[in-house]
């Protein structure tokens, strides 16, 4: 049941750091976060890691395990062999603070740049009427736990620091799609998405969808539909003409 696992954990801060080797007990049914906690309690009390719910619902314990962006609490130890060395590092798209903790303020800044829900002015609380089929698309995106793994894995910013200004990342492009598909939202999201949030930089290579622990189909259901909506408004002369003549759905 119990075995001694080999771990390599990145220790350090923004000035430098390295992978440190550990040998640590693993019991049946445990996840990587349990092992990190065991390291804290038994070998290095100051090993920094973010975590909250330990049930995959809060999105705090994002890191990279064997180079793959994952939630520490949702990665079962049974997915590794007993001989394997398991490498745990902080997310590599964001500045590191210490050990496994990164500075994710980029995401909060981007969140603030997305204009909020804009309901019709004359609608009073309690009078909102929406059909289930009309809210379901946005509801899928609202499952997002903001673990920022999609932001971390997206090569547009992961591999190009300079793009962080112009590109909001999958999470917030999905937020724009969510609002655009909200049955009662009245704002123009399409121009925003392309002109201010860098939707055009997305080359739909789907890594965001691959890492999403909530299994949200970010690319197929949010980013591509949003790109198509942008085409309607910006690049499709026929649809553009149609909207000028006055017929809108």
């Amino acid at each position: 049941m119990t075995y001694l696992a080999k771990f390599r954990v990145w220790r350090g801060d923004d000035k430098g750091g390295d992978l440190a080797d550990y040998k640590v007990d693993v019991n049946e049914g445990e996840v990587v976060l349990d092992i990190i906690h065991r390291l804290q309690a038994t070998q290095s009390g100051d090993l920094a890691v973010r975590w909250n719910c330990k049930a995959g619902k809060c999105g705090s314990c994002s890191a990279e395990i064997n180079g793959r962006p994952r939630l520490l609490c949702m990665t079962r130890m049974s997915t590794f062999t007993e001989e394997e060395t398991i490498t745990v590092t902080p997310m590599r798209a964001f500045p590191v603070i210490r050990d496994l903790v990164t500075d994710v303020s980029f995401n909060y800044r981007k969140a603030r740049e997305v204009p909020s829900f804009a309901p019709p002015a004359n609608l009073k609380p309690g009078e909102y009427r929406m059909q289930q089929v009309d809210v379901e698309r946005s509801q899928e995106f609202r499952k997002c736990i903001e673990c920022f793994l999609c932001q971390n894995t997206c090569h547009v910013v992961r591999d190009h620091e300079e793009n962080k200004q112009a590109f909001s990342g999958p999470r917030f492009l999905m937020r724009i799609a969510e609002l655009d598909m909200h049955p009662l939202d009245t704002a123009d999201r399409q121009h925003q998405a392309q002109d201010e949030h860098g939707l055009g930089m997305c080359n739909i290579t789907k890594c965001c969808t691959e890492v999403c622990p909530e299994h949200i189909k970010i690319t197929d259901n949010a980013l591509i539909p949003m790109k198509e909506r942008v085409v309607d408004r910006k690049y499709d002369p026929l649809v553009w003409l149609g909207s000028k003549i006055g017929r809108r759905s």
Binding site: W10, G12, E64, G67, R68, E84, T89, R92, H160
Partner: peptide
């Protein structure tokens, strides 16, 4: 010195630590 090797990010030399 760009991308994952940008200043401020965790100082890891490998381009990826993926083992698959």
């Amino acid at each position: 010195q760009t991308g994952v090797r940008s200043p401020g990010r965790a100082n890891i030399a490998a381009r990826t630590l993926r083992t698959d």
